[in-house]
Design a protein around this nucleic acid. Structure first.
Length: 282
DNA sequence: CTGGGGAGGGGGCCC
DNA sequence: GGGGCCCCCTCCCCA
């Protein structure tokens, strides 16, 4: 997963495990709208050009804005006003539109991306008496992806739930969307982002909970792979994927079967091994 | 069936 | 307290 491509001068307190492996570049900047990071997005007409027989790629649509330094579109504000139109550049909140250069706005408006379907749902979610979601309701991520955000989500709801939190002796903040509980408002706010998904990809419209998730996603459009394996010629866009790949070079894998002592590079492989019944045992 | 790559989610720590 | 960054993890897909 694209986790740590943002350049950071590592402090003396934190020693990166993979610092010696990295070939990351300084791509940091600041969003003019929200102060968040901005990636100069170079479309793959310079990176991985599609040949005529290839299936359509996102950058094929975006090629009209090739060579444009595309600001990372953070729709925190756009979503703050929002609804499905938040994904439609031509109808987006003008505050969000200001985050885009005029040429880029025009280019995106000419992409003719298919409109997202209107979804028959309401906000906030209808909760049954048991707190469970009623059938047909969208998951938070889906809801946010389609622009259905709690534009007027009751600010006091979490507070009211806090008051009825069973952990009477402690401060307890409950997510208004999934009833998860957190010990601090900050943790709750972070979690709520996984429901509201305020960061939208300017290329394909996909929504993410955090700016750096979006930046990692943008690499799927640009083809950038800053994390090179020191043992082979492979490179990865995601540090986590490099980490998993490095396991394949290790003689002793990280995850070991307790019955046959066979090791695996991933927990999923170990789990699959144990569940398959193929383990010969000790 | 197994190994591995790609993509993404989420919580915690630190500044 | 907020945001950036890190680590761990999962899921899907393909060879």
């Amino acid at each position: 997963m694209p986790r740590s491509f943002l350049v950071k001068t590592h402090s003396s307190h934190r020693v990166p495990n993979y610092g010696q492996l990295e070939t990351q570049r300084d791509i940091s900047g600041a969003c003019s709208a929200c102060g968040g990071p901005v990636v100069p997005l170079i479309f793959p007409d310079k990176v991985a050009p599609s040949s005529p027989g290839d299936p359509p790629q996102p950058w094929d649509h975006a090629s009209v804005i090739a060579h444009t330094s595309l600001p990372l579109l953070c729709n925190e504000e756009a979503l703050g006003a929002s609804g499905p139109e938040a994904l439609d550049v031509s109808r987006a909140d003008p505050r969000a539109s200001r985050a885009l250069s005029a040429p880029l706005r025009d280019s995106l408006n000419h992409l003719n991306l298919p409109p997202l379907p209107a979804l028959p749902m309401r906000w906030p979610p209808l909760l049954g008496t048991d707190g469970a979601q009623t059938p047909g309701r969208l998951l938070g991520a889906e809801r946010a992806l389609h622009g259905h955000r709690p534009a007027h989500a009751p600010a006091g709801l979490a507070r009211r739930r806090q008051l009825r939190c069973p952990l009477q002796a402690q401060r307890c903040f409950t997510c208004q969307f999934c009833d998860k509980e957190y010990g601090s408002l900050g943790a709750l706010k972070m979690h709520i982002r996984t429901h509201t998904l305020p960061c939208l990809c300017a290329v394909c419209g996909k929504a993410f909970s955090r700016p750096w998730l979006l930046q990692g996603h943008l690499r799927t459009h640009t083809g950038e792979k800053p994390y090179a394996c020191p043992h082979c010629s492979r490179a990865f866009a995601d540090r986590s994927n490099l980490r998993a790949h490095l396991q394949t070079h290790s003689e002793t894998k990280k995850y070991q079967c307790k019955r046959c002592a066979k090791t695996f590079s991933r927990m999923a492989l170990l789990a699959r091994h144990e569940e398959s019944g193929g383990c010969p045992g000790p």
